[in-house]
């Protein structure tokens, strides 16, 4: 079967790759573009470790085909820190010890950023439901929620 040629934008850079029709966006990011920040935890859209945004919308990249990225704009964890400075969410995750093993961290950061773009002042409950699609097995979520709340407060103050 012939491969599909895809041209897309990832973290602001125009990129192209050849993919099998069956390959997911996650496969393409990891195997063709060497962007291994998004992780495969389940492959069924249940864990959120592969979270990226496509045209600004939060998606599980394991549930998007690589071919679907044609002409789209993808944002991954690798694009979150800008000009050598961490995003406030990234800084607050380190400060609050909101990660233990760190495998879920890229997906949770991408998802949390997406939440704060839509709702800069979420309640704890809103935050917990927004992040319910991102599994963390280490932390019990306590420090994650605190880090997101703290980052949100800092970002509101700065804006």
């Amino acid at each position: 079967m012939s491969k599909i040629h895809v041209t897309t934008k990832v973290n602001g850079d125009e990129v192209e790759y050849l993919c099998e029709p069956r390959e997911t966006l996650l496969d393409c990011l990891r195997d063709h573009l060497d962007l291994t920040g998004a992780k495969e935890g389940c492959g069924t859209g249940d864990c959120g470790a592969c979270s990226v945004t496509m045209d600004g919308r939060l998606v599980c990249s394991c549930l998007v085909l690589g071919a679907e990225a044609q002409g789209k704009e993808i944002a991954t964890i690798e694009g979150m820190a800008e000009d050598g400075a961490l995003h406030p969410l990234q800084r607050k995750f380190i400060e609050h010890a909101a990660l233990q093993c760190g495998i879920c961290t890229p997906g949770i950061l991408v998802a949390a950023k997406s939440l704060l773009e839509k709702n800069p002042d979420p309640t704890e409950t809103e935050m917990r439901y927004w992040l319910a699609g991102n599994l963390c097995r280490c932390t019990g979520y306590d420090k994650i929620i605190r880090a997101v709340m703290d980052a949100a407060a800092e970002m509101r103050e700065a804006s």
Binding site: T76, I77, E78, E95, G102
Partner: peptide, 21 residues
Amino acid sequence: TRPERPDGWDKVTGKARFGAD
């Protein structure tokens, strides 16, 4: 004390290399 973990930067930027990476 509660200093920042030495591998924090790698783990919040997606640079840390896990098993499948």
